[in-house]
Computed example of a mutant assay.
Amino acid sequence: MPIWYDPVGLALGVALDHLFADPRSAAHPVAVFGRAATKLEKVVYEDRKANGVVLVAVCVGGAAGLGVLAQRLPKGGRTIATAVATWAVLGGTTLAREGACMADALERDDLSRARARLPHLCGRDPRQLEAPELARATVESLAENTSDAVVAPLFWGAVAGVPGLLAYRAINTLDAMIGHRSPRYERFGWAAAKLDDVANYVPARLTGLLTVLTGPDQKNALAMFRRDGHRHPSPNAGRCEAAFAGALGVTLGGTNVYSGRTEHRPTMGNGPKPDVKDIRRAVRLTRAVSLAAAAAAVTTAWLLASRRRGARP
């Protein structure tokens, strides 16, 4: 079945995310997907890569299949389906709000509140973190999640329609659930982690380039993107973080603790470590990159739709 590119639906979905953000509700489509994936995991789990492949194939295939069904709707229905799917998979407004909440807490020297909010942004253990490390964690999470929550879903929605939107969010959600390193998921989560790396390869680099274009220091953002983007252990996150570090004139990276597991990551950037004031600057940069990504996605979908119409006999 041919892919239907719907720029109007994408634009409406971006507007819905801006207006209503990402409500924390058990009825949210991503939450429903997560519960279904958890139930399936209980059925198929064994400490083997093959079982993880089965989980990923069923969950991602099911999400993509739902998107294909949405593309069978009449034109108006496809637009509504694209808008709802775009709203469901985007998290840019919520991401910026979480960053602003962290900035507010740290500006008030409320470490307890800031530590309680950090898990909304990343999986880092916040219990022993002081204000400078909380600020660094927030800036790094804003950089990485600008790609995961905004640029990547818009990219896949622009080039693959509703199936692309839903399949990407399924992949990214599974990676968050089982793609991390732990004794339980070292093998079972392998497929989810690898597929997420593939799905984010292009979007992460687009995020870096959009950061260069929209950031306050374009020259330094480009220099750090090129120099340090490969230094992160993730093949994708480093491209985003290095560009953010250069644009904001800070240094990211260092020692992180995740549920008792310590990681020592190379530094990126050539400035001082982030301070509390840099969180507000990172939030503004996240919003600028998100706006540029939305414009690029809608334009791309419009061009592809125009080309498809022109190719009809």
Score class of each variant (00 low, 15 high):
Lys277His: 15
Arg307Met: 10
Ala296Ser: 11
Arg205Val: 04
Thr255Ser: 07
Glu263His: 15
Arg307Lys: 06
Thr300Phe: 08
Arg227Asp: 00
Thr211Lys: 05
Thr251Ser: 07
Thr267Pro: 03
Asp217Ala: 10
Leu285Ile: 11
Ala192Cys: 13
Gly271His: 07
Leu210Ile: 04
Gly238Tyr: 07
Tyr201Gln: 11
Met268Leu: 12
Phe244Gly: 12
Gly215Asn: 01
Ala297Glu: 10
Ala204Phe: 06
Asn200Ala: 13
Gly269Phe: 09
Ala243Met: 06
Ala296Thr: 11
Arg261Cys: 09
Pro233Val: 05
Asp197Trp: 09
Pro272Gly: 10
His232Ser: 03
Gly260Ile: 01
Phe225Gln: 00
Met268Lys: 07
Arg239Trp: 15
Val283Tyr: 15
Lys194Trp: 05
Ser290Val: 08
Thr300Trp: 10
His230Gly: 02
Ser259Val: 07
Ala305Ile: 09
Thr286Leu: 13
Pro203Phe: 12
Asn236Ile: 01
Arg226Trp: 03
Gly269Ala: 12
Arg239Asp: 12
Ala237Arg: 06
Ala204Lys: 04
Lys277Trp: 15
Gly260Trp: 08
Arg239Tyr: 15
Thr211Val: 09
Gly238Lys: 06
Ala282Arg: 12
Arg226Cys: 00
Thr207Ile: 11
Asp278Pro: 10
Arg227Pro: 00
Arg287Cys: 13
Tyr258Ala: 12
Leu206Tyr: 07
Ala245Val: 09
Leu222Asp: 02
Ala192Ile: 10
Gly254Glu: 01
Arg280His: 13
Gly260Thr: 03
Ser259Trp: 08
Ile279Thr: 05
Arg287Lys: 14
Gly249Asp: 03
Tyr258Asn: 09
Arg265Glu: 00
Phe244His: 09
Gln218Ser: 03
Asp278Leu: 12
Trp190Ser: 15
Gly238Met: 06
Ala297Trp: 14
Thr255Ile: 12
Ala305Ser: 05
Arg261Val: 14
Pro266Arg: 03
Ala223Ser: 07
Val298Cys: 07
Val276Gln: 02
Ala242Asp: 04
Met224Ser: 04
Asp197Val: 09
Val198Gln: 10
Ala204Gln: 02
Glu263Ile: 10
Leu248Gln: 03
Cys240Ala: 15
His230Ile: 07
Thr300Glu: 14
Gly246Thr: 08
Arg307Trp: 09
Ala192Trp: 14
Ala193Ser: 11
Val257Asp: 08
Lys219Met: 02
Asp228Asn: 05
Val202Lys: 06
Thr267Val: 11
Ser234Cys: 02
Ala245Gln: 03
Asn220Cys: 00
Ser306Ala: 13
Ser259Gln: 06
Arg307Thr: 04
Ala294Ile: 05
Met224Trp: 02
Gly269Met: 11
Thr211Gly: 05
His264Pro: 08
His230Phe: 01
Thr251Gln: 03
Leu195Asn: 11
